[in-house]
């Protein structure tokens, strides 16, 4: 029972981290980055390589993955998003999905289709916390997600760069006229989001292993977390991620693993119908219609 709770919270932490990355890109550019979870997937492979082939300590692996994630994010913004700015509404979805598929394809070619286990943090084994079994990797994921979520919330609501990003997402033209470097902000948001999912990839891999199709499931579940928590709300994402993770793990335990995704999907449909603005929407800004 408590073990399932820990499992739910820790997988929820992974969703929360991807959702927070979605939010960073969304606040900075109003774009939904389909490839976000795929960047995390690439990070898990780099982490496995760092550990098994190069014997790097965990701290170094985290830095390497963060740099790689930031690079992929920035390059993605440059080739798949920037050319479309101001052009059309839905093509970003296609181009960022294209990037995601390319990343999957590269991972498949480089590392094959077998899941790869993560050597880090193996030495700690499994702990008994509050009557449930949980690994150190899982516990750290939960802590990291909370720290990052609260940190990003402070960043986006208390610092000038965060407020600038918020303002830009509300009205790009007005921000540009006020001297905001809108392009720099966009690249920065993609790079920051990439760095975030890259940095947590070594921890995530201890839980999910590294496989080339890791991105897909994470992408849709992190989207549900985003919808449930309210678009743009960092703290909402944290809470929603806990709910989704726990629901998923309990469904897997009591209904069977084939029900895991179906249950989450039903929750998504319900959320979209009943709570279309999520639990913690920042209050829908009135957009000028014409």
């Amino acid at each position: 029972m408590v073990t399932t709770l820990w499992a739910g919270l820790s997988i929820g932490a992974v969703y929360a981290l991807v959702a927070i990355a979605y939010n960073i890109v969304f606040i900075g550019t109003r774009v939904f980055n389909f490839a976000q979870a795929y960047i995390l997937m690439v990070g898990t492979f780099i982490a496995v390589e760092a550990a098994s082939r190069f014997d790097l300590p965990l701290g170094v692996a985290i830095v390497v993955c963060a740099v790689a994630g930031a690079l992929i994010g920035a390059v993605e913004e440059f080739i798949a998003v920037r050319p479309l700015a101001r052009k059309g509404s839905h093509n970003e979805l296609v181009t960022t999905l294209g990037i995601g598929v390319i990343l999957s394809g590269i991972a498949l070619v480089l590392w094959g289709s077998e899941p790869r286990a993560m050597p880090y943090l193996k030495e700690f084994g499994v702990l008994d916390v509050l009557g449930g079994r949980v690994t150190v990797g899982e516990l750290s994921l939960i802590v990291v997600a909370i720290v990052v979520g609260v940190g990003m919330w402070l960043l986006s609501t208390r610092t000038s760069i965060g407020l600038t990003a918020l303002a830009t997402s509300e009205d790009r033209d007005a921000a540009m006229l006020r001297g905001v470097n809108v392009r720099g902000l966009a690249t920065g948001a993609f790079a920051l989001a990439g760095a975030l999912v890259g940095a947590v990839a070594p921890l995530v891999a201890t839980k999910t292993y590294a496989t080339y199709h890791l991105g897909e499931g994470l992408a849709v579940k992190a989207f549900l977390v985003l919808a449930l928590g309210g678009f743009g709300s960092m703290l909402g994402s944290l809470l929603a991620a806990g709910i989704v993770g726990i629901l998923e793990m309990f469904a897997a335990r009591y209904l069977g693993s084939d029900w895991q995704n179906i249950t989450v999907f039903v929750l998504l449909l319900i959320v979209l119908v009943v709570l279309p603005h999520g639990l913690f929407s920042r209050g829908k800004a009135q957009e000028r219609v014409v």
Partner: peptide, 27 residues
């Protein structure tokens, strides 16, 4: 539900729907 929130939600709901195919077939 998918059309409620505009473009992303439609893309994600249908993407998720495709991911469910193997699960439903197995069930």
């Amino acid at each position: 539900p998918g059309l409620r929130l505009g473009s992303w939600s439609m893309a994600m709901v249908t993407f998720f729907l495709v991911l469910l195919v193997p699960d439903v077939v197995t069930l």
